[in-house]
């Protein structure tokens, strides 16, 4: 704040500077915000009331919640939910990248095919799509490998080849791919055209330009919404009962409560598991974002800087989905050498 230093003496009203020219720190009575306090107290009171009430309300039946939380059937179902999420998301991301590149292709046929895919899979509800996948064996009774209009070399019955778990994954993945395609496309378009030119001018091939230059930079734009999609997918797995596939978390807890005639505690059990997974995913996303913001964030990511905190940076920071640059949130350690970055060059 050297600017106040210069204008200080001239203005005459600010505290006088001492000999060395450093200005006095401001000592003023803090502005009070009484309504903030009132509002906070009211919120805490409402929350406390709700928690205490919930603890003693019989319908929640916390004893049953405790009993089923680590029930083997439930934890196996949680694992299945996780598998559904991971498999369908991996397929969706691969397919999404392919579709995004197709949409950016100069070939109009390729472009239209990708557009048509998006139009179908994004334009119909995932529940309907899953139901149709469940009925696929009615539409295509057998899967034949061979040339069209000739006796197939290999033939399976659809029911034997595709179980409901596979169908659930196919249904979720193909639907999600349409959304991933748009996310990846936005990411690819976000990279400056000059980057591609620089890579091409160095003699890099299309695939090298893509994998070494464009994709790593687009990751910064792709990861936050993809994190959202993963979390959304985790929850969407509860719809695979439409296939019908019944071994995932939601359907399993509904099935158990159908026997016990006590639906609320099992819904709470399922919710706790969903929350547990989404929390882990959020932390994972935070670290991924950090990894791919290399060179654009602040000096936090500089591995050669011994003063930069490499571990413990996450303490006290709640990774927020879609919050953009986490590096901005982290307060820099004292004495960041970044301030001397330009000047000390020569």
């Amino acid at each position: 704040m050297s600017a106040t230093n210069v204008s200080g003496p001239a203005a005459g009203t600010t505290p006088p500077s001492d000999e060395t020219g450093t200005s006095q720190p401001i000592k003023a009575i803090r502005l009070r915000h009484p309504w903030r306090v009132v509002f906070a107290v009211v919120l805490v009171a409402i929350f406390a009331f709700f928690v205490i009430d919930a603890a003693f309300r019989p319908a929640y039946d916390w004893v049953t919640v405790g009993k089923y939380l680590f029930d083997r059937r439930i934890s196996m179902a949680a694992l299945v939910t996780l598998e559904l999420t991971v498999f369908s998301m991996v397929i969706a991301i691969i397919l999404g990248v392919i579709l995004a590149v197709m949409r950016l292709s100069p070939n109009p046929v390729v472009k239209s095919v990708a557009w048509f895919y998006l139009w179908i899979f994004r334009g119909t509800p995932v529940y309907v799509q899953l139901t149709i996948w469940g009925l696929i064996s009615l539409i295509y009774t057998s899967i034949d490998i061979g040339l069209p209009f000739m006796t197939p070399w290999i033939s399976f019955s659809t029911n034997a080849a595709l179980n409901t778990f596979t169908l659930a994954i196919i249904g979720l993945a193909l639907n999600e791919a349409a959304y991933m395609a748009e996310i990846v496309r936005a990411g690819l378009l976000s990279v400056d055209k000059g980057q591609e030119e620089a890579a091409v001018a160095l003699g890099m091939s299309w695939s090298q330009t893509m994998t070494r230059v464009i994709l790593p930079q687009s990751m910064r734009v792709i990861i936050p919404p993809t994190g959202n999609e993963v979390i959304s997918m985790l929850k969407t797995t509860s719809l695979v009962t439409a296939v019908p596939f019944s071994l995932e978390l939601y359907t399993r807890s509904r099935d158990i409560s159908a026997e016990t005639f006590n639906p609320i505690p099992l819904l709470i059990v399922a919710s706790i598991w969903y929350l547990f997974f989404t929390s882990i995913l959020m932390v994972g996303q935070y670290f991924l974002e950090k990894r791919f913001s290399r060179g654009v964030g602040d000096r936090q990511t500089d591995k050669n800087d011994p003063t930069a905190p490499t571990t413990g940076a996450i303490t006290g920071i709640v990774p927020v989905i879609g919050a953009g640059q986490p590096t901005v949130v982290v307060p820099p350690a004292q004495g960041t050498p970044g301030t001397t970055g330009d000047g000390g060059a020569r």
Partner: peptide, 25 residues
């Protein structure tokens, strides 16, 4: 494209806006 890329290897280019790869040192 492969042959064109081969020709470009021998021609260096420096851009107005540098176009350094920001994710690399």
């Amino acid at each position: 494209p492969k042959e064109a890329a081969k020709q470009r290897r021998d021609i260096g280019m420096v851009f107005q806006r540098f176009n350094l790869f920001p994710h690399m040192t």
